[in-house]
């Protein structure tokens, strides 16, 4: 008699997906726990760390926002290699408003988010119709181009950048702003992509011609998603610039493009939670590895390779599967 390992969805998952009938506290906790985990972790647990680690978690939140922004674009099939473009534009808009007109962060953050996203959307509009490698190429080149533009024309302080920007009132306030915005983006986008709107967005990624056949203007939807993704990236930039009290050329650095992609790949794309999880693994890890000195990048790279080869679907997808399914041995008759 041969045996076969069977994988079955837990009853609670099936019921909560279809008819949403919860019958006990146990089931409510089952559904609530994974959602409460990031909220409790980010708002209650993370602020308990030392100021040094809080600093690291603030930059982790920035990278997590950029990873979410990357994931948003991927959900409609746009593979961006230039999150640093969004980060840089957001940081320069916020920096300029603060530096030249003295606006406080409470105004520069929303203005840079919306205005920066509008600038990025308009800049990328001509290439939005291109798919695959062409969109990636342009997003890769744009930040590098702007970098040289700033250097050559010396606008916005040239190579020195804009210094002496107003900081946030305190480290804890700063941390709560970052984490709250991260949670809003995380749950907001998850909700958005679960709605009917998200259905269209995912449809465009799967088969854009079929969506066109349904009489929907896919370019308009792509523009909207690009705007949303850019808004998240620009917010990260604006936040980062007030955090550093400096807006300058490093905002367009390649780090801000590569790290979010690595985070999203390690965590698993398409869920946003995966991107956040990836960022919260990779950024602190890179700090811990500082102790290794010059070998840091080697170990970091090794870790990435192990992750991508070991769990190619992404860590979050793997955990989710284990959480929702159980396995048992059955006879093959």
């Amino acid at each position: 008699m041969k045996k076969r390992k069977e994988r079955i969805d837990r009853g609670i998952k099936v019921r909560s997906e279809d008819i949403f009938a919860l019958t006990s506290y146990r089931e409510m906790i089952y559904l609530l726990a994974p959602r409460a985990l990031p909220v409790v972790g980010l708002l209650l647990f993370v602020p308990l760390f030392s100021p040094y680690w809080r600093e690291i978690f603030i930059s982790t939140a920035i990278y997590a926002l950029l990873a979410i922004s990357w994931d948003v674009l991927v959900s409609v099939g746009l593979i961006s290699l230039g999150q640093s473009f969004f980060y840089g534009v957001g940081s320069y808009v916020a920096g300029a408003l603060n530096h030249y007109w003295g606006l406080p962060p409470v105004l520069t953050l929303p203005v840079a988010t919306i205005g920066g996203a509008a600038i990025c959307t308009i800049a990328l509009l001509p290439v939005l119709r291109l798919r695959g490698i062409y969109f990636s190429m342009v997003t890769l080149v744009l930040p590098l181009m702007i970098l040289r533009l700033v250097e050559a024309t010396r606008i916005f302080g040239g190579t020195e950048g804009l210094t002496g920007l107003s900081p946030f009132p305190g480290q804890l306030t700063e941390m709560y702003i970052a984490n709250a915005c991260l949670l809003i983006a995380l749950f907001g986008f998850r909700r958005l992509l679960d709605s009917d709107y998200g259905l269209i967005v995912r449809g465009i990624n799967d088969n854009d011609r079929a969506v066109m056949n349904a009489g929907l203007n896919i370019h308009w939807y792509k523009t909207q998603i690009l705007f949303l993704g850019a808004a998240v990236g620009c917010f990260a930039g604006a936040f980062g610039t007030h955090h550093d009290m400096f807006a300058g050329m490093p905002g367009f650095a390649l780090d801000y493009s590569i790290m979010p992609i690595a985070a999203a790949i390690v965590g698993g794309t398409g869920t946003f939670a995966g991107s956040v999880l990836g960022a919260f693994i990779l950024v602190p890890l890179s700090e811990i590895l500082r102790a290794l000195g010059a070998l840091r990048i080697v170990f970091y790279g090794l870790f990435l390779v192990i992750f991508v080869v070991g769990i190619p679907e992404g860590l979050f997808h793997y955990i989710r599967r284990k959480y929702h399914q159980f396995e048992r041995w059955v006879d093959v008759e």
Binding site: K2, R4, P312, E313, R321, V332
Partner: peptide
């Protein structure tokens, strides 16, 4: 298997 998708078994 690499995608974490459906498991295919052949007997």
């Amino acid at each position: 298997r690499r995608r974490g998708g459906e498991r295919i078994t052949v007997y």
